[in-house]
Amino acid sequence: MSTEQTPATANGFSYTLTRALEAPAARVWQAWTTPGQYARWAYAVPGSVEMDVRPGGAWKATVRTPEGAEFPLTGSYVEVAEPHRLTLGMDVPGRPDPATMTLELTEQGPRNTVITLRQTCDTAEERDGAEQGSGMLLDGLTGFLADDPKA
């Protein structure tokens, strides 16, 4: 996995995570946009994931940390271009506009896809936390695809 952080700009603090996955882009897309599959790899509490995968559609999930703390997450889909690009708006308490994260899938052959996650945050601390969470998501997704490539 490669990680890139960009210095603070007028737009905030950004990071980019890139990882090669052994699955076609359509399979990765399905894992990211199907509630039952997403819950299996994204540390979500069973039954907490809801997805209306279309521009303006809502999503929600409650994530459980390894320590057992639970965090409800909500947002909406900003851009949906199956199976190559997905932009999520994420509700942030105290922030008037949602934070956005963009997922891009680039096929590099029939069973190889490069996934790139990008996000810009308001502070370096927020960026570091979001980057750590995104890294955990990519770890979970990688393991899920390896364990169950056709689920």
Rank of each mutant, 00 (worst) to 15 (best):
S48P: 00
D91W: 00
T62F: 08
V45E: 14
A10P: 00
N11T: 11
A58C: 05
A58S: 12
W29V: 06
L137K: 07
Q119K: 06
W59L: 06
T100P: 00
F71T: 06
R85G: 00
R118W: 05
A81N: 15
Y15D: 05
L88C: 05
W41M: 12
T6W: 04
Y77R: 08
D52I: 02
N112W: 01
L145S: 09
L105S: 07
V92K: 03
N112A: 11
T18C: 09
P98G: 07
L21K: 14
G89I: 01
G143N: 15
T100A: 05
E131K: 06
A42F: 10
P110N: 10
P93S: 06
E126T: 11
R64T: 05
V114G: 06
P98N: 07
L103D: 02
A151I: 03
E126I: 01
D139A: 12
L145G: 04
P24Y: 02
S76L: 02
T33W: 04
N112L: 10
A10L: 05
T123S: 09
D128Y: 01
D139C: 04
L138T: 06
W29D: 08
R111D: 14
T116P: 04
A26S: 14
T9G: 14
G94E: 02
E82P: 15
T33N: 10
L141V: 02
L117P: 02
W29Y: 10
A42C: 09
A99I: 00
P35R: 08
P66M: 06
D139F: 12
V114L: 11
M136K: 13
R40N: 05
V49G: 02
I115L: 12
L103Q: 03
T142P: 00
E67G: 06
L86R: 15
V63W: 09
L138W: 12
M51C: 04
N112T: 12
W59D: 03
G135Y: 01
E67M: 04
T34F: 08
P98S: 04
N11K: 11
T62G: 03
T65E: 11
L105I: 04
P35V: 00
E107Y: 06
G140M: 08
G56S: 09
A130C: 07
A39W: 09
F13R: 03
S134W: 09
A81C: 07
A8S: 14
R118L: 04
G133E: 00
T74M: 01
D148L: 10
S14P: 01
E125H: 10
L86I: 10
G140E: 06
R40Q: 15
S14T: 10
M101A: 13
Q108S: 12
G36A: 04
Q37W: 14
E104N: 09
G143R: 15
M51N: 05
P149G: 10
Q30T: 10
T74A: 13
R64K: 15
S134L: 01
A42P: 02
G36R: 02
W41Q: 13
W59I: 00
Q37F: 07
P83E: 08
A99C: 03
T116I: 05
S2H: 15
G56I: 01
P72C: 03
W41N: 10
L88N: 13
R95V: 01
A25S: 14
Y43M: 13
T106D: 11
Q30E: 15
V53T: 07
S48Y: 03
R27Q: 13
P72F: 03
E67H: 13
D122H: 14
P55K: 04
T74N: 07
E50Q: 14
V53F: 09
R27T: 08
L137V: 05
V45N: 11
